[in-house]
Design a protein around this nucleic acid. Sequence first.
RNA 1: GGAGGGUUGGCCGAGUGGUUGAAGGCACUGGUCUUGAAAACCAGCAGGGGUUAGCGCCCCUCCAGGGUUCGAAUCCCUGACCCUCCGCCA
Length: 426
Amino acid sequence: MLDPRRLRSNLDDVAAALRRRGFELDTARFSALEEKRKALQVETQELQNERNTRSKAIGQAKARGEDIEPMRARVAEIGARLEQVAKALDEVQAELDGMLLEIPNIPHASVPDGEGEDDNVEVRRWGEPPAFEFKPLDHVALGELHGMDFAAASKLAGARFVVLQGPLARLHRALIQFMLDLHTQEHGYEEVYVPYLVNADSMRGTGQLPKFEQDLFALKGEQGFYLIPTAEVPVTNLARDEIIEARDLPRRLVAHTPCFRSEAGSYGKDVRGMIRQHQFEKVELVQLVPPAESYQALEALTGHAEAVLRRLELPYRVVTLCTGDMGFSAAKTYDIEVWLPGQERYREISSCSNFEDFQARRMQARWRNPETGKPELLHTLNGSGLAVGRCLVALLENCQEADGRIRLPEALRPYMGGQAYLEPRK
RNA sequence: GGAGGGUUGGCCGAGUGGUUGAAGGCACUGGUCUUGAAAACCAGCAGGGGUUAGCGCCCCUCCAGGGUUCGAAUCCCUGACCCUCCGCCA
């Protein structure tokens, strides 16, 4: 959520900034609502003031043993009027809040203008796409050799699921352990275990609700649970309604969770293989930092995600998302894209974003600024470190040998019982 | 699933209808004292919002939402969450 005060005082500037990312702010509607709100709020507060003052006087009169009946009648009148005005104010405020919740974040000045994926700007590359002396297979064909079973998954659940068998399932698990160990032991993150079902408040806090409900899986029943689409939701919401002391910052948290996404609106995209699933595993990095440090933290966090690919010896590039391709809540995002020989292109494997105070304002996540002594909004960041399924895909495709074996990078071998290769099952 | 207890400021904790936005303690900040630190003492210290050039003034908030009342942290109803005991259970 953007700062309502900023909207009030700089409406045109905000509208111009939002236009960069293709969002047209209805300034006329906002101004009209805001004007109504102001008038109603002032009137409400004046009436409340009068009621309070007179009620106090009644208390004092009563203590002196005076007759209070006439005074009571006057205050009752005020109360009746107050009720009407307050109701009108509530309605306007609700409409205004609804509008604010659907306005996306303002892109940082360093974010390039653009309309979509094609306008993203490459920042750097690492590693060389492997040169094969044979025709490399894609992960679906390789998966067939190693125990990746889409038919079984479709029987159990449907499309966009996978079953992994034997050593491949172990490799999948090994990747998770490796990533968690790297981030906790070398990058200073604290590992957390969190619920995979969350309430609507949490979804609102990070920005999935109210606008993107169709992307989520919601559970039947009265509890109002949603399946998390990413660990970002439970982990970032740890800070919701909290005031964190400056000495406890920055907070660096890492969690491994399954992620559940309905993928509504992506019909026909990536239907083959395990690139786009309803259920996948992810290791997520989250940082809570003082505002002055957030862009520095974004660079560091992106580096932590990159480190995973370097250790796994997988070639990748980093791109800055353009204004038109960024997510709703982000002020700036780097995508890390890994090379996939099966597709002969780089594909997203991590998305690292600084949300500035956009999420923090929604969830009232604050810190105590020692310079002012006051609670102020934090900046929140997160990034995949990494998406496990896609990492498995990249590993299969990049590390394949002519005979269908998969050469395991050194970093993973301790997690695979010392094996250097994954042998085909058939 | 059954029965009971609870939810107050950053934390702990008093407070059952009227200057209580809330005693006291801890933590924190500033000061006195000290070579320095600690201790002791003094002072300050909730959050959100409106309005104002500013000083300030005002409003809201004691889990949430309703209700009673001139007036609610305090009374009533509903809900959420936490705790204890019983049952069940990985």
